[in-house]
Design a protein around this nucleic acid. Structure first.
Length: 497
RNA sequence: GGUCGGGUGGCCGAGAGGCUAGGCUCAGCUCUGCAAAAGCUGCUACAGCGGUUCAAAUCCGCUCCCGACCUCCA
């Protein structure tokens, strides 16, 4: 593979050349949602990030096995005491079985994924479907001495682990503080140290979700499912693990400890973390009450929005920022993205209506070099830690070329056919396959096309009679229903906004 | 308090020692019956103060702001 793909590895805090363990295969895991209610746009940004990673790796020829889990086992919000888990909580609230809640929000999640054009992962395992694997892993950790039992719960023994391994490397945490600060352990505290975390938690018999284990009835620890399922489908060590920045600690840190504790090997080669979506500078989160639901976005019903936005425009908006930067979600930014998106997609359409004209006399080496360079650059930008904003900037440069060919401002014959074809192929691949922003909005094309043809024909007639009042009326009315008429030099075209 | 990451033009947002980012907005021009679209031109920024360097938005130091994580969170 001629690509020099570099990935920023959270573990080393550096961009590293991507070298898969077993090329051309790539194993990639990304943390999915806990299905206790609807996902919001912030969640979606992370899923979109890894969707593009998956798409790009596939595009450049890797055979990717992409695993994204569904967390459908409730986890206690409070590790120490009683606590309730979100899924059971929600089940009580909606008066449904926990598994009904899980199903409902899994369905909803899948709908949202489809709307935003996220490719389905290769495997989408659920926590509750892998209780056996999780129990096996706990046994292994116990056997290796890195966990202990207390009243039917199993805790990971961080202090013990640190005798041999490092804990806190990923998040740069100084665990000594946590270990020293023994604090006042309240009566419920079963942990030996503050830093220890549950890998199995016993629950009361009236708890809605619970499973049988060698240590009594309980629920698996949250961090454990990813370790168990990642290992099962991708092996004890795999290439890429992704997730939101907010999962770095404790979630991913614990995952590393569990895997190392069980198998003695670093589970992941490249850790990737997607940054947060913010609203007025603050992290979008359910608890802050500033989250946007996908539906509110399309309908424009959120109080911070002036209008609704198409899903693909939003996807484009997210991709215009680098995944490791925070992205602020505002009306103005969304509007700017929407317009830019329309421009890009218009060029995409124009490109496919262009036909190449060969005229060797007009050939220009400079033009050829320029276009070839753009084709090369767009890949270089993606190879640099999936820099989608830069790749998009290159696509805009291509769009400018495409429009110029169409308008005849630059003759298409200045480039040779091969160069034109690669421009077409690459531009198309990036829009469709890599960025995934070309999802067709369902529409009854035949009828619309026929009607538009008729209407524009009539308008042409009145314009010929210089009845501009009638002509403009048609144009204005069409604009009101979302169709924009463009009077070009050689004929009239229209687009659906 | 600890750890990490930021502060870039009217707005969004890349870049990360010398080279036009890109998008949106705004103004002018070309085209057009007008408009839109498209193209061209212009507006040209890197929080502050020092330092290193032939050269700093980019490196170093200090200061001021902001955010994330440290409890569930994508």
């Amino acid at each position: 593979m001629e690509h020099q793909l570099k990935i920023y590895n959270s573990l080393s805090r550096e961009k590293e050349l991507f070298v898969p363990i077993n090329p051309p295969h790539v194993g990639m895991y990304s943390c999915g949602p806990t299905v206790y209610n609807e996902v919001h746009l912030g969640n979606l940004r992370t899923f979109t990030t890894f969707d593009v990673v998956f798409r790009y790796l596939t595009h450049i020829g890797y055979k990717v096995r992409y695993v994204r889990n569904i967390t459908d086992a409730g986890h206690l919000t409070n590790d120490a005491g009683e606590g309730v888990d979100r899924i059971s909580d929600r089940a009580k609230l909606e008066e449904l079985e926990p598994m009904e809640i899980v199903q409902k929000y899994t369905n909803s999640f899948h709908d949202v994924c489809a709307i935003f054009n996220l490719l389905p992962p290769s495997i989408e395992p659920t926590a509750t479907g892998h209780i056996v694997e999780q129990i096996e892993m706990i046994k292994q950790i116990l056997k290796n001495g890195y966990a202990y039992e207390a009243h039917g719960s199993i805790y990971f023994d961080v202090r013990k682990y640190m005798e041999k391994y490092k804990y806190g490397e990923l998040s740069g945490r100084n665990v000594d503080d946590l270990l020293e600060g023994t604090r006042d352990l309240d009566g419920q505290e079963e942990k030996k140290n503050q830093a220890d975390f549950a890998i199995w938690k016993s629950v009361a018999p009236n708890h809605l979700q619970r499973w049988v284990s060698p240590w009594g009835e309980g629920i698996p620890g949250w961090h454990l499912e990813c370790s168990a399922m990642g290992t099962k489908y991708l092996g004890k060590q795999f290439d890429i693990h992704g997730g939101g920045m907010d999962l770095k600690f404790p979630h991913h840190e614990c995952e590393i400890a569990q895997s190392v504790g069980a198998d003695g090997i670093q589970p992941v080669r490249y850790w990737m973390h997607a940054n947060m979506l913010t609203v007025n500078g603050d992290k979008m989160s359910k608890s802050k009450g500033n989250s946007f639901l996908p539906r509110e976005l399309f309908e424009g019903t959120h109080h911070l929005l002036d209008k609704g936005y198409a899903p693909m425009a939003v996807r484009f908006f997210m991709l215009q920022a680098h995944y490791r930067s925070t992205l602020d979600f505002t009306n103005e930014a969304l509007q700017a993205a929407e317009k830019g998106f329309a421009r890009l997609m218009n060029a995409y359409k124009v490109l496919h209506e262009l036909s190449y004209v060969n005229d060797a006399a007009k050939r220009s080496d400079a033009e050829i070099a320029e276009v070839k360079n753009l084709c090369k650059e767009v890949y270089e930008r993606m190879d640099d830690d999936f820099n989608t904003p830069e790749a998009i900037a290159v696509l805009f440069e291509m769009a400018k070329k495409i429009n110029s060919y169409k308008e005849g401002l630059i003759s298409i014959s200045t480039i040779d056919e091969e160069t034109f074809n690669s421009l077409k192929t690459i531009f198309t691949s990036f829009i469709k396959d890599v960025l995934g922003i070309d999802k067709e909005e369902k529409q009854d094309n035949n009828i619309t096309d026929g009607l538009m043809e008729l209407i524009l024909e009539l308008r042409k007639d009145v314009r010929a009679k210089k009845d501009f009042a009638a002509s403009d009326k048609i144009r204005d009315q069409l604009l009101k229903v979302g169709i924009q008429v463009k009077d070009g030099k050689d004929g009239v075209t229209w687009v659906k906004n």
